[in-house]
Design a protein around this nucleic acid. Structure first.
Lengths: 105, 105
DNA sequence: TGATAATATGTCAGATTCGACATACAAACA
DNA sequence: TGTTTGTATGTCGAATCTGACATATTATCA
């Protein structure tokens, strides 16, 4: 964020800070959340690149449309386990996963 | 594997092939298993680098010694989720995780 | 050798996550 | 506008995963 935006916000009385601060997450919790979001995004991008609907994807994953939607939304009821298996099932390479992880840093 | 070893094995009547072939795993199943093993190994290496016993590690992870042992053994009852959270809890960087992923390729 | 510390394995009740279904919302087009 | 297609959200019984405990196995050292 350029300082201008932050200071403008301050002038208007907005409190600024990270989501992590706001929720009081530890570093590892924040990293975990971030990781989930990066993988969820990677999954959606991969599905779209393959020109699949969520229903198509669900078939390949032997799951349901609703669960695919939740995966892509990084819903709390979706485990990293499921996210990673979904990515692999759609043909994501370990290289691709590594890149998604890197994005968390 | 250098060819010499494989051909020597053949001479002795050993059948050679990958574990994947033997178990009849699909590519994605094999990748999933490999991923688990790489992360399990990374966890053990990290714990040892920190000079922690499994009991010490269990305390930091708010878990038990037996579960830590199973994590490091990539036991079937341990999810990728738990493995990744354990790694993060011991301070593994996304960079480190990315490196472990890449080792699967 | 035996004692002690570290790690591995088996089991289980409670917690979490799963696929599935119903249904709500949103975009594209008639 | 209504219809169709794709996506999001809420719920639930069944399946899976979890920490904990007991116990076995494997070092390490006296």
């Amino acid at each position: 964020m350029r300082t201008t935006k932050k200071s403008r916000a301050a002038k208007k009385g907005w409190r600024t800070g990270t989501v992590q601060e706001f929720l009081g997450l530890t570093d590892e919790e924040a990293a975990y959340v971030e990781l989930r979001h990066q993988l969820a995004k990677a999954l959606q991008e991969l599905r779209i690149r393959l020109k699949l609907t969520q229903i198509d994807a669900a078939k390949r994953l032997k799951s349901s449309q609703s669960r695919v939607a939740k995966m892509e939304a990084a819903d709390a009821t979706v485990s990293l386990d499921l996210l990673l298996r979904a990515l692999l099932a759609l043909g994501a390479s370990p290289e691709m996963l590594a890149r998604a992880m890197r994005r968390c840093a």
